[in-house]
Design a protein around this nucleic acid. Structure first.
Length: 601
RNA sequence: UGCGCGAUGGUGUAACGGUAGCACAAGUGACUCUGAAUCACUUUGUCUAGGUUCAAAUCCUAGUCGCGCAGCCA
């Protein structure tokens, strides 16, 4: 067993789907548990998909199974190769170090194998698992790789008298379908002969008819109470090139027809999807059962998708935010896309902990963004290197400290992790402190720096504010302080009881950096509540850019590491960062009890 | 007035006939060279009404409320 699947620290999750799987394993119902994650490549993956990925891959790793990545690409008009690539990248990132060895892929270009099972013809597309990221000979599964087989199944259905070519226009098809409380009417083309259906479907496939002229429909029951059983469409005509199959096809299977068959072809045992597909399940079963297939049939199970507060997770609206340039792109750190979350500095482990922690039920609920933020902080607190950085600098001159003198002070890298060691931080006569850490007129219980008051500069000296220097307009430009020169960490008076300790950066040694202060994209918990325009709920302060003064060690910051600027927030290096111009993203602030206190009064 | 699904503190989620627990949030205190983290404590819940049972969140009946479904989208 690889380290990828070593028992995770949190207890194995339990939910109604895992209960079902566990029972199937106990019964020996399947040779192996096989799930799949089947996104349509028509947008970027988001936090909701993360839940689905964690569920499907989680089941694979807990029950010794496999989880395939499959592009559910049956609608060429909406899909794009850009999305295929981003999906692969995001899935890899989320599962690496966790379920990478359960990742079901297939050799590049490989199509389903024709085989014979118990004397019956069959198609199968087996998975290859446990390949490394570098292995470029593998690729995800594509529903579009099964178009030949799906088409063959369509002919089988026609021959069994279970499908027919219908000439109704789109509008008439709608009208004939009836309403939820009113039965539909049979299509006038419903009773064509098998021969005619075979001929017509062949000609559809050959491109003899224009878009929308005809469809292939399942022959079930136009009076069925479940509208999805009222002779649902199986195939439609689309003279459109496909990102994966090119110009080969002008007919494309509908989701309901393609999905169950794709699951079957891949040997999926548990086809897990969201609640809105619940009413499709009888159709899923009908198609598979109508085909007299030789292998075990997959079964569909539904769960409630993740709805986080203060976020938008509808692909259509995400696209809108991107297209209207409300954000900078799909990977804007304010977006709940997996690529945005990654760029923001959230680790895969933190996202997973959240996505698993929310649980799996059939109850539609909104998950408080605080739960997500807690998962992010919990993870970053453990791993982030502590550094000092001043976002809004206020110069402090320590008048009794010799000009030109520099001390290299010891600073702890991570109090949560002794092995992270220490570093040196330079101290000198002039330092920057946070403007918020000084108050000329302090609020009650304010225990940072104030006129005549004392505060400790972390790892350095206790200083006292003697004078507040202002410009002509009355703005504070500088503070003159004196240090207790015996109070340095380890010094004679270092133990003095001083309530406040603040961070600082030596002015002469400070490194300027662009720091992007990200906040929630929406200020309302439910941006779409009561059908209002979600853009009215946008947080105008979701991004603020400042030029910060950072301690010099941050020049060596690495993109794979995480940093806590002490007392402020967690940060990571942005992809825009260069040696000349450092750029940091604020992942999330530290909890701020003081801000809450101020707000109360 | 069709079919399907659901309902446990403020928000999520467990308990599978036998003490309603956990997380987040909120609050109080301790500690603190991060107003962070950590630790301790506290507040708040089984949709309603009947029934079965020694015992019901759980089983039964009826109701209430909410969500999904009428794309040639997935």
């Amino acid at each position: 067993m690889s380290t990828d699947s070593a028992p995770a620290a949190p207890a194995a999750p339990s939910d109604f789907i895992r209960d079902i799987v566990a029972q199937h394993v106990a019964e020996g119902k399947y040779a192996r548990i096989h799930t799949r994650f089947p996104p349509e490549p028509n947008g970027y993956l988001h936090i909701g998909h993360a839940k689905s990925i964690c569920l499907n891959f989680g089941i694979a790793r807990e029950f010794g199974g496999i989880c395939n990545l499959r592009m559910d690409d049956t609608n060429p008009t909406k899909e794009d190769i850009e999305y295929v690539e981003s999906i692969e990248e995001d899935v890899e990132w989320l599962i690496s170090g966790w379920a990478r060895d359960k990742y079901g892929l297939k050799p590049k270009g490989k199509l389903p194998e024709a085989q014979s099972v118990n004397g019956k013809p069959d198609f199968h597309s087996p998975a290859v698992v446990g390949q490394t990221h570098e292995n470029s000979t593998l690729e995800p599964f594509y529903a579009s790789d099964y178009f030949d087989q799906i088409c063959e199944y369509a002919f089988t259905l026609i021959k069994k008298g279970k499908a027919y070519v219908c000439d109704l226009s789109p509008a008439d098809t709608d009208a004939y379908r009836g309403a939820p409380d009113k039965p539909g009417k049979d299509s006038p083309w419903r009773n064509r002969s098998i021969e005619e259906n075979l001929d017509l479907f062949t000609r559809m496939k050959n491109g003899e008819f224009p878009d929308g002229a005809r469809t292939l429909r399942a022959k079930i029951d136009m009076a069925a109470p479940n509208v999805w059983l009222r002779d649902p469409l199986l195939y439609r005509i689309r003279h459109t090139a496909h990102h994966h199959t090119g110009e080969k096809w002008c007919i494309y299977p509908m989701y309901d027809f393609a999905h169950c068959l794709s699951d079957y072809i891949e040997g999926i045992t548990h086809s897990i999807c969201t609640l809105e597909f619940e009413v499709h399940r009888p159709l899923y079963d009908w198609i598979l059962e109508s085909l007299d297939l030789p292998r075990a049939l997959p079964k569909q199970y539904e769960f409630a998708k993740l709805i986080p507060s203060h976020m938008i997770v509808s692909k259509r609206k995400l696209i809108q935010l991107v297209n209207e340039k409300v954000v900078t792109g799909w990977s804007d750190p304010r977006l709940p896309t997996i690529s945005g979350i990654r760029r923001r500095g959230v680790t895969a482990e933190a996202l997973r902990n959240f996505a698993i922690g929310v649980g799996v039920t059939k109850y539609i609920s909104t998950t408080d963004i605080a739960v997500y933020e807690h998962a992010v902080r919990e993870d970053l607190n453990r791993r982030a290197l502590r550094r000092m950085g001043v976002l809004r600098p206020l110069k402090v001159v320590i008048t009794n400290y010799p000009a030109g003198q520099v001390e290299e002070l010891d600073a702890v890298n991570n109090p949560e992790d002794e092995t992270a060691g220490k570093r040196k931080v330079p101290f000198s006569r002039e330092v920057y402190i946070e403007r918020d850490d000084f108050a000329e007129v302090p609020a009650p219980k304010f225990f940072r720096l104030k006129p005549g008051g004392e505060v400790r500069l972390k790892y350095a000296y206790i200083i006292k504010c003697d004078e507040v220097v202002k410009d002509a307009a009355g703005n504070i430009t500088e503070l003159c302080c004196t240090a207790d020169l015996d109070s340095k960490t380890g010094g004679a008076t270092a133990g003095r009881k001083i309530k406040g300790t603040i961070h600082w950066v030596s002015a002469a040694h400070a490194v300027d950096a662009e720091v992007r202060l990200y906040d929630r994209l929406f200020s309302e918990s439910e941006p779409e509540k009561d059908g209002r325009d979600f853009k009215t709920a946008l947080n105008p302060n979701s991004l603020e850019v400042v030029t910060a003064k950072l301690e010099p060690s941050l020049k060596e910051a690495k993109p794979e590491l995480r940093y806590q600027f002490e007392r402020l927030a967690y940060f990571c290096l942005d992809q825009d960062s260069t040696a000349e111009r450092l750029v940091f993203n604020r992942t999330i602030t530290l909890k701020d009890t003081w801000a809450k206190e101020v707000k109360k009064s």
